[in-house]
């Protein structure tokens, strides 16, 4: 097997051993479709911040672990972040700040909809000022 070649990058997988193909259908979620849409808008005129091969190069530059463990649109999202910074469209600092803000906001609200479905009166928890729930995981 060619898997021992040290310099081969994780995307270059033709011929690698792998399990059966999971042929289940999957309708792209709204998040996935939004990432797809944004990536097209950023790449196409009039913006044309980058070209397809720059997008590919960015995805190929993910660590082997990230490449392996991330879904297709997860990789696209990480690439979008890198390219926006690389091209000077957004700064790393402002993305990080916004990311923390979004995460805190949604960590509070995570309790909301599930309780609302079973116990409608729990709607007040949406206004809760409780601290954002700490979630495991690393910053993007």
């Amino acid at each position: 097997m060619a898997t021992t070649e040290p310099t081969r990058k994780p995307h270059d997988m033709g011929g690698d051993p792998a399990g059966p193909v999971d042929t289940h259908e999957h309708t792209p979620t709204l998040v996935e479709r939004r990432i797809d849409a944004m990536m097209q808008l950023l790449r196409q005129k009039p913006r044309a911040f980058w070209v397809t091969d720059e997008n590919r190069r960015t995805i190929e530059s993910l660590t082997p672990e990230t490449y392996r463990d991330s879904s297709y649109y997860q990789k696209w999202c990480l690439a979008m972040r890198s390219l926006l910074v690389e091209k000077g469209v957004l700064t790393d600092a402002e993305i990080q700040t916004k990311f923390e803000e979004v995460k805190a906001r949604h960590s509070v609200q995570v309790e909301g909809p599930s309780k609302r479905q079973s116990k409608p009166k729990a709607k007040s928890s949406m206004k809760s000022k409780s601290a954002p729930r700490k979630k495991k995981g690393t910053s993007p």
Binding site: R34, C77, L90, E94, K98, V102, K103, V110, P140
Partner: peptide
Amino acid sequence: EPSEDWEFLEIALRELMIEKEI
């Protein structure tokens, strides 16, 4: 509900780009 970091990142990038009129 978004619960994973990449989903938060998608929201963050989108909101930033809309705010900055990109």
